[in-house]
Write a protein that binds this DNA or RNA. Structure first.
Lengths: 381, 381
DNA sequence: CTGTTAGCGCATTCAA
DNA sequence: TTGAATGCGCTAACAG
């Protein structure tokens, strides 16, 4: 708590008041930083021209005699040469960075997508640059602009919020775009589609098989295409079994506000249980829009003395990594997050390396996978 | 499943076999990309010199007449001018990007730290570039090198694995480094320290107050400083109450391997319960090394018919966002992840803006905060 | 206040 | 196979 006024940055953030901090060796003189060595230095030391040095140090494949190559490599090593990627990108107009925009880093689903992207990108010596938009269109725009400014010409957006003009601008600039879980299609982009109808069918089939006939559907607001699709799938599947399913059986949360920590789905789940209990119907099973929401549902249910699956069964969608950690472990329909990231990234890199200007619009189609755990029990009627 | 051979990127990854994908409009001709407009274009259109245009478009604060300023702004707007940050950075040798390296994006603790960093960085118009090392030293080194190559001269590493020479190289290059949850100190860096002894004391005090006297400590391998610190704190606190606490009461998992999904702490928790049950002692409470581990413990306990907190109480450390979602919601000692990110980032930006070469070594010291939920119950003996 | 000039570090023509 | 020369887009001296 020393010298806090000396600290030139804004310290008005509330949490910073609680932090004790100390300065150790203020007077430690920094070793004067020599600028990093450049191609020029290397060339000079090796006694070759700049261009020759460039040719070997950039792995251009351009033929250089073994003699010179050796001298250059040695000099580079001695001088601890590190290429300046900025200059390289500026000159050659080709970046090896892929931008990735996610709504939030707090939802493990998106983290899994990133993992998939990363696995492919790394394989091809691409770096990924991750941004989170916090489900905020303005932020999304800002990040896209920043990508343009940094001449990052490949971009993957997960669960984009609007068909922003900024995105079209990006494409006009020559940027390649892939959209995962998008609400819309756009020309010249790679997109994913998920068979939500099929996923819903899997969930319903299983519940029916376990003897359930009174089924409720609990969801976040239907502002996203995928939520509507799942609802439609659930409805069709249930009706196909000749079981009634009406508006009364659908519970829609009203609060779309993002919580501070970014896991507002959890709070929606809790809210949904309130709605749910206002209904008089005697449900034996709940289908939740996703796992995070299901977590909230389980907790709120427990607090009302209703336990899953003894008193009511629960199934949802996503299969995030925590779904096996909660009690009871969630029975869920997995949406292949990693595959989405990986395949879309593959295709994106492919599209970059295609030098012709023909642009391939491709759609990847994914299917859900049923994962049985403990949140649904068999009932005999 | 069409044309999969045509796909020039490697498609040998197993999951890609299951994906149906289609090409829509292969022949869509791409609008020929004009190179982005540059300062030169803007200057020409506005009828001013390059430098004048630069001066207004880079917000340099350099005085320019309102007349010209207006013309330049207008031209820039008309031409849809977007500055090339690469060129700017190359020329001015100052980047506005902060690199952030985390062990994994799967652990919400680190995500919270990132949130803290982001909140400060954004406020100062800095971008953050996130990398995950997957607890792999080689990856860590690669990312640091990549940061050097991109002339990103500010770096925050969370839970760094080794005192790599690469890091010193980075500092020698003039890079500013902040270390969060580091095992070691290093000159010319900003670091955090957490009062683990105090945090452990909070946990023990609470258990004692709730009537517990037979307490077990379950932990991941003691390879990290913070784990050892917590253990020491627990031991001292318990003994202070005159209650015996010996090696028999400490359960240490043996498996340090990272799981594919990155939440190996969870599996450690499950493994720990196996060890725990080999003991004959009659514990009434468990202290777990962190929340993720506690999740595994709860589940494994449940599967053996032991429920928390009815049969045994449980307390741990971190307070990740899922701790309130599991059942029972976890009683835990919060470690202030966001504050760590925020304060360290503040200081880092401060150190960048200090043009003098005196480097300030600073330590931030954090305290745990007790969070009462449902996983501990009062017992009467 | 404005413009001219130089050059950040590199890849890439073109000529030898 | 090598080297000299050019310029990617920008900022920062410097001179007016």
């Amino acid at each position: 708590m020393i010298n806090i006024e000396k600290f030139s940055f804004e310290l008005t953030l509330p949490f910073l008041n609680d932090i004790v901090w100390t300065v150790l060796s203020v007077e430690a003189e920094m070793k004067k930083t020599d600028r990093a060595s450049t191609l020029k230095n290397v060339a000079a030391m090796a006694g070759v021209s700049l261009s020759t040095a460039s040719r070997v140090l950039s792995n251009s494949g351009y033929p250089v005699s073994d003699l010179l190559k050796g001298r250059i490599l040695e000099a580079a090593d001695k001088l601890n040469y590190t290429p300046n990627i900025l200059a390289r990108t500026l000159r050659s107009n080709t970046s090896h960075i892929i931008g990735v925009i996610v709504p939030t880093l707090q939802n493990p689903f998106f983290n899994q997508v990133i993992l998939g992207i990363e696995s492919i990108a790394n394989k091809h010596d691409y770096e990924i640059m991750i941004f989170s938009s916090h489900r905020n269109i303005e932020q999304e725009r800002k990040h896209i602009n920043s990508l343009i400014q940094n001449r990052v010409m490949a971009l993957i957006i997960i669960s984009i919020d609007t068909e922003s003009t900024t995105l079209k601008k990006y494409i006009d600039y020559g940027g390649k775009v892939a959209l995962i879980e998008s609400n819309f299609r756009l020309n010249h982009t790679i997109i994913t589609e998920t068979d939500y109808l099929g996923a819903a069918q899997l969930a319903v089939d299983y519940l029916i098989e376990k003897g359930h006939r009174k089924i409720a559907f609990l969801t976040a607001p239907l502002t996203k295409t995928y939520r509507r699709s799942i609802l439609v799938g659930v409805e069709e599947a249930i009706k196909e079994y000749g079981i009634p399913f009406t508006e009364k059986d659908i519970f829609i949360a009203t609060n779309e506000t993002e919580s501070e920590t970014g896991v507002y789905e959890f709070f929606l789940g809790r809210q949904l249980v309130d709605l749910f209990f206002q209904s008089k119907a005697n449900y034996t099973a709940i289908i939740a829009i996703n796992d995070l929401t299901a977590f909230g549902i389980i907790q709120a249910l427990n607090q009302r003395g209703v336990s899953v699956p003894q008193d009511i069964s629960l199934i949802s969608f996503d299969n995030i990594i925590y779904s096996e950690m909660v009690s009871p472990a969630l029975t869920t329909v997995e949406l292949p997050s990693r595959s989405m990231g990986a395949s879309v990234c593959s295709m994106l890199l492919d599209s970059i390396s295609n030098t012709n200007d023909k642009l391939t619009d491709v759609i990847f189609r994914f299917e859900g996978r049923f994962v049985e755990r403990e949140s649904v029990r068999k009932i005999s009627r």
